[in-house]
Design a binder for these strands. Structure first.
Lengths: 209, 209
DNA sequence: TAGATTGTTAATCGATTAACAATC
DNA sequence: TAGATTGTTAATCGATTAACAATC
């Protein structure tokens, strides 16, 4: 089997959400055409994507068995066994992420947050403890955590990333508007909201013409 | 001149941030090689991207004049003339976005928020007023707003999008985990955090092997 | 059987990278 | 001049879509 492509991987959560909705409606089988229509995708693309994830073949004429498909997607995406993470930066966005329990559904479990602000240190946010930065390494080591979330102002982002890497973090999810320099082997996903905004504005402008 | 590609547009904000940093250091000219090294990109790609945006040519041997380049990027990205927007959903994430003044730098001006929760309606968040949903249309029309931000739970996202479109919104920036069905001509940027997380986890898992 | 649907191979499209002439 | 750098054309790479045989 081929390596799964980034583009495909990116679409998988949307498929799964679509399948959940169909399940709620009591549907028992689903075709690639239906999924494609619901998500504005090409049916061939859906079939290819499903082929990566699915352990059972679809049946011509009827499509895929919804229950089996959901199980395959959940297993593939690892939603069933949750993964621990820490978060640094309990400011506005950090608080929002800590307060959002929806990530649990996606297999994410934030076990602790860290900050330098004395006012939030040693409090809890949504029953998650906030510690001072000096405790980061010991927490990461003790709980064997590999995923770190960065929600600090961009000036501090690189520094925080360095601390994380030193502590043994292997994957970083950053919401800071700062390009991070990381040693090879550390996975990085940068949520660049300025880039999203630029994309959107450009489409808006091109409508004006 | 060719149409600018999505991929290029996505990189522009990172370029500009990089240029700002160089400016702070007192640098006066910059080469594509330098930018590429700072952002982990290919120098040829940098030159191509710059060519889309830049009004003046770079000089062999010396590179680009930093001041000119920054002006070109700012103009292109529209950071100089800000654009008004409204936001619906003053919960955790919505509050974080309303509270973050950094978007002003990117030319985004959120003029008002809307919510159905009586506890937040008619309060202000970061000196931005929160109104009840029924006022949305009149505000959008009065201020001629074209950009709407959705930060409501996914069950309500489609409904909110419909209200926005009806009011005359032309571009939607959604943070809800829900595929939106929109009439043609409405620009959409969907921030799918579950997809980001899936991407990151997959890289993390492939390290384990 | 006829028609809808799957799975796969081939063609197309778009974006990145390599090669290289021009030039300061 | 020699060397670094730009800008552009051609080659490559990857992802999407079209075409189509297989099959329920």
């Amino acid at each position: 089997m081929q390596e799964i492509s980034r583009a495909t991987l990116n679409r998988l959560p949307a498929y799964l959400r679509c399948l959940y909705e169909l399940e709620k409606k009591g549907v028992s089988t689903v075709s690639s055409t239906q999924i494609a229509a619901a998500l504005d995708l090409n049916p061939v693309q859906v079939r290819k994507d499903v082929a990566y994830v699915s352990t059972v073949a679809g049946k011509p004429k009827t499509g895929y068995v919804l229950k089996e498909l959901i199980a395959d997607f959940e297993n593939f995406l690892g939603y069933r066994n949750s993964r621990d993470a820490i978060l640094v930066g309990a400011g506005g966005l950090g608080r929002a992420i800590l307060g959002y329990d929806g990530f649990a559904k996606y297999g994410l479990n934030i076990v602790a947050a860290f900050d330098i602000d004395e006012k939030v240190v040693n409090t809890t946010i949504n029953s998650k403890p906030v510690y001072e930065m000096s405790k980061l390494k010991s927490v990461v080591e003790r709980f064997n955590i590999r995923l770190g979330i960065i929600t600090v102002p961009s000036q501090s982002a690189q520094e925080v990333a360095d601390v994380m890497v030193d502590a043994g973090i292997l994957a970083i999810w950053s919401f800071s508007a700062k390009h991070l320099n990381l040693p090879p082997g550390i996975a990085l996903k940068h949520e660049d909201l300025a880039a999203s905004l630029a994309l959107l504005r450009m489409e808006l402008i091109s409508q004006d013409e």
